[in-house]
């Protein structure tokens, strides 16, 4: 069984294409990390799953149902931590949870829910006085009510301190152990790396990678990150670098050039930059991390193929 299936989904807002021809399948029981920079189309995709917006084209299935036709049935079995929400300022934390319990028609102890998300003792306070992180915890608590089969968490760690983000990950793991499918989005790889079975990376509305965490690790395991200090480099100067064999991606912020490449391609990269008239002041190399790969996918020139291909041709 698949928990989520997107088939050629496109969503346009006027002239802007937020999501383009997206194919994505998340099997039941998987913890899936939906990665991508802000504005890549992650929230739009999630909003399509929840029927907050309707796709311009394509087919969507959530828990085997059409989220538009069976919207309520989908949400009866789905816990959602939405993006860009706000709480009801005049209602207390406990009243929010009670509302979730009543809405889902289940029997649950609001205090146990508040305790689980770290809001024990804050239940009688008005949610209007909560910090961003507390509001985030409250919405997570509401999502967890009724032990849903599917959890959709949109940027769940935003507003949380590192300790809070860890608690969030612990809860995700507990939910996965219970058998729930977890679909969560983030623009920070570190938050999904530790809990996800697999990830998809979205960029400019297109899926640029879909792999397991292990697969991604293998992909970067032998690559190198080259950081070159050189002033006044424009994106055009990087064309020659990207054309080189063994180079996965190259980007610049004007003063530093960052290149993902095989170890033996380093010299060729420096050479190509100097040929382009760039004065290289300094450079350093280090072994690539998953973070580097993620940044290469989301910031640099998009690689043409899926993440698995990044491992090809590496022997250093």
């Amino acid at each position: 069984m698949t928990a989520i299936e997107l088939d050629g989904v496109t969503k346009r807002f006027g002239d802007v294409t937020a999501v383009e021809e997206l194919d994505l399948t998340v099997p039941e029981g998987e913890v899936f990390g939906f990665l991508g920079p802000n504005g890549a189309g992650k929230s739009t995709t999630i909003n399509v799953l929840l029927d907050f917006v309707r796709p311009t084209a394509g087919r969507v299935e959530v828990l085997g149902m059409d989220p538009q036709a069976d919207s309520v049935a989908v949400r009866e079995r789905t816990g959602v931590l939405p993006e860009g929400f706000s709480t009801y300022d005049r209602l207390t934390g406990r009243e929010h949870v009670e509302f979730a319990i009543e809405s889902k028609g289940v029997d649950a102890d609001p205090d146990a829910v508040l305790d689980r998300v770290g809001l024990a003792g804050d239940g009688d306070r008005k949610a209007g006085g909560y910090s961003k992180g507390m509001a985030q915890r409250l919405a997570l608590g509401m999502a967890l009510v009724g032990d849903p089969d599917l959890l959709i968490l949109d940027e769940p760690s935003s507003g949380l301190d590192p300790a809070g983000a860890k608690e969030m990950r612990d809860i995700v793991r507990e939910e996965a152990d219970r058998g729930a499918t977890v679909f969560f989005s983030s623009h920070v790889l570190g938050q999904v790396e530790a809990v996800c079975d697999s990830v998809g990376i979205l960029r400019d509305g297109k899926l640029v990678a879909r792999d397991s965490i292990e697969g991604l690790r293998e992909a970067v395991g032998t690559g190198a990150t080259l950081e070159i200090t050189a002033g006044g480099v424009t994106d055009d100067d990087l064309g020659a670098v990207r054309a080189l064999d063994g180079v996965d991606a190259a980007s610049t912020d004007g003063s530093t050039v960052t290149v993902q490449c095989d170890s033996e391609a380093k010299t060729a990269v420096i050479g190509a930059l100097e040929d382009a008239g760039v004065a290289v002041e300094d450079f350093s190399t280090r072994e690539s991390s998953l973070e580097d790969l993620f940044l290469a996918y989301t910031e640099g020139e998009a690689p043409s193929d899926a993440a698995g291909d990044a491992a090809e041709g590496v022997d250093a």
Partner: peptide, 15 residues
């Protein structure tokens, strides 16, 4: 406008 509707419609209510 405030975004509370997202919290509301994340729960199983029809529009």
């Amino acid at each position: 406008e405030s975004g509370t509707i997202k919290l509301l419609l994340s729960l199983p209510h029809s529009r």
